[in-house]
Simulated scan of single mutants.
Amino acid sequence: MSPRWKPNPEVRTGRHVVHTLHAHLVFITKYRHGALTDPMLIRCEQIMRDVCADFEAELHAFNGEDDHVHLLIHYPPKVALSKLVNSLKGVSARILRKEFNAHVRTHTSGDHFWSGSYFATSVGEAPLTALKQYIEQQKQPT
Rank of each mutant, 00 (worst) to 15 (best):
S2K: 12
W5Q: 10
K6A: 11
P9S: 08
R12W: 06
G14T: 05
G14K: 04
H16L: 11
V18G: 10
T20Y: 08
A23H: 05
T29H: 01
T29F: 00
K30W: 04
R32Y: 09
R32E: 13
R32S: 12
H33F: 07
H33W: 04
D38A: 12
P39D: 12
M40Y: 03
M40G: 03
L41M: 09
L41S: 09
L41P: 11
C44A: 15
E45F: 03
I47W: 01
C52H: 03
A53I: 00
D54Q: 12
F55H: 15
E58D: 14
F62G: 01
N63H: 10
N63Y: 10
N63V: 14
V69M: 04
K78L: 10
L81R: 07
K83P: 01
V85R: 01
L88S: 10
K89H: 02
I95L: 12
L96K: 02
R97W: 13
F100I: 06
N101P: 04
N101A: 11
A102K: 14
V104F: 05
T106S: 11
H107N: 10
G110R: 08
D111N: 13
F113S: 09
W114S: 05
S115Y: 03
G116I: 06
S117K: 00
F119L: 00
V123C: 01
V123W: 01
E125Y: 11
L128W: 03
T129G: 04
A130N: 12
I135N: 03
I135Y: 05
E136N: 14
Q138E: 10
K139S: 15
